[in-house]
């Protein structure tokens, strides 16, 4: 890295000390940012006793899963919350990847009347803050369509997001048109072109899209909180919040619940770190 190198000098020793100092500072900072997560996991193994301050310890003294038991015993639907979250996030992810690919391909490679206009509409929709739509959306879904406590209410508004269509369009534009042309000459139909040529050529970007969508949908709190009243239909985030309001003094079980809600994403992150990190930079850095 040229930023640090001094040309002409070859002081290996100096470079070593510099790196050690940098690493030490970075590790200190990382410890601070990771501390809440460490603390959450560690405390979740404490006993589910009701006491303020009893279990404020940075090093685990005992290991018990009783707090997890406590969390799952709290509501008969605890497991269902996790399933609900998985189901909703799964459906939303599949739909987003599929529909965003199709629309992205249409905007990138097909010419049709209104193409520019519809894409412009999309860009505008992307910039609207959610506060503007939240009330009418709530009225529409709950009062007009009567979708309260249904999966469709959870899924429909984010079935395919403007951002994902935009992302797909941006990437597909860079694919060589000649490949698509030759497929057309061979008699390949449009849906088959997307399925057999465009999507396989864009595996990475679609994987990134899938992961960011899944992550966002799993962690989303606001919308499920608004449209799910019955305990049966809540997602894990909403259930967790209600659990915490009912059990403010039970520290360890709360941390157990928090760990349960975060664990699937951590597992996903550690197995697919590359795509997660790519997902952050996609669209942010030019070139």
């Amino acid at each position: 890295m040229g930023l640090y190198r001094r040309y002409g000098t070859k002081d290996k020793y100096k470079e070593k000390t510099r790196n050690i100092v940098l690493a030490a500072v970075l590790i200190c900072l990382a410890v601070i940012t990771l501390f809440p997560i460490y603390y959450m996991v560690i405390s979740s193994f404490g006993a589910p006793t009701e006491a303020g301050g009893a279990s404020y310890s940075l090093i685990p003294k005992s290991f018990s899963l009783a707090s997890y038991q406590f969390f799952f015993d709290y509501s008969q639907y605890s497991f269902r919350w996790i399933l609900n979250s998985l189901l909703v996030a799964g459906i939303v992810t599949v739909c987003n990847v599929l529909f965003a690919s199709l629309a992205g391909y249409a905007f990138a490679k097909l010419r049709f009347p209104g193409c520019q206009f519809f894409f412009f509409l999309l860009l505008v929709a992307m910039m609207i803050p959610y506060q503007v739509t939240q009330v009418p959306l709530y009225i529409l879904v709950v009062n007009v369509l009567k979708w309260q406590d249904t999966y469709i209410a959870l899924v429909a508004p984010t079935l395919v997001t403007c951002y994902n269509v935009f992302l797909a369009k941006q990437f597909f534009t860079s694919l060589p048109t000649s490949v698509i042309e030759s497929a057309k000459i061979e008699g390949c139909s449009q849906p088959l072109i997307v399925w057999k040529i465009v999507m396989p050529l864009s595996k990475t970007v679609l994987a990134v899209m899938a992961i960011t969508t899944f992550l966002g949908e799993w962690n989303t709190f606001f919308w499920p909180f608004l449209v799910c009243n019955s305990e049966k239909m809540q997602t894990i985030q909403v259930g967790l919040k209600n659990f915490s309001f009912a059990n403010t003094t039970y520290f360890a079980p709360m941390m157990a619940g928090a760990t349960i809600s975060a664990l699937p994403m951590f597992i996903l992150f550690f197995s697919l770190q590359r795509y997660f990190l790519e997902g952050v930079t996609v669209g942010a850095v030019k070139g």
Binding site: S261, A262, F269, V280
Partner: peptide, 29 residues
């Protein structure tokens, strides 16, 4: 990865932890 991990944990879960970190009692973290 280390710096990004908090962004992956759900906001609800993290808010619990921070609440206990900010506990007003003298025994608070």
């Amino acid at each position: 990865g280390a710096f990004y991990l908090p962004a992956i944990a759900s906001g609800v879960a993290l808010s619990f932890v921070w609440k206990w970190i900010y506990d007003p009692l003298p025994s608070g973290l």
